[in-house]
């Protein structure tokens, strides 16, 4: 979603509100829910940064730190020239990517631990049965 938003803002120079509306029609899942919520707030008269931040905070599918990262983007989006927008979205994407990478590593590490624990528990059950 952020990649597509970056393209809309930097290449098409689309205003933030129009870009959010356009992307909400093209997205699916959590991204669609988030953009739809942001557009609803904008339609209700809230400025785009506040709308974006509120919608990000309501995004329960994300962890708190990810929600905060997305919400912090609100106050930089649309506040600078094309190069600035590209840099801002790039920075946010990198931060979210790092967090995703860390989460995957953590999951793999934990899954190994659980697998070992499972094997040990199995063996303990067999020993106990004997």
């Amino acid at each position: 979603m952020l990649g597509a938003l970056g393209e809309e803002l930097s290449y098409n120079q689309t205003p933030l509100r129009t870009a959010a509306e356009r992307l909400s029609r093209r997205s699916a899942g959590a991204a669609r829910d988030f953009l739809h919520a942001a557009c609803t707030y904008m339609e209700a008269g809230l400025p785009p940064p506040e709308s974006w931040a509120r919608a990000a905070e309501e995004l329960r599918a994300f962890e708190k730190t990810d929600r905060q990262e997305l919400a912090s983007l609100a106050y930089f989006l649309g506040g600078s020239d094309i190069e600035g927008q590209r840099a801002t979205i790039g920075r946010c994407l990198r931060a979210l990517e790092e967090r995703r990478h860390y989460a995957v590593e953590k999951r793999d590490r934990l899954s190994k631990v659980y697998r070992t624990l499972g094997v040990l528990a199995g063996m303990a059950a067999v020993v106990a049965a004997l």
Partner: peptide, 13 residues
């Protein structure tokens, strides 16, 4: 300034 630009400075660059 931001509101005059519709919070989209890049669009009015």
């Amino acid at each position: 300034f931001r509101a005059l630009c519709e919070y989209s400075v890049h669009s009015h660059q």
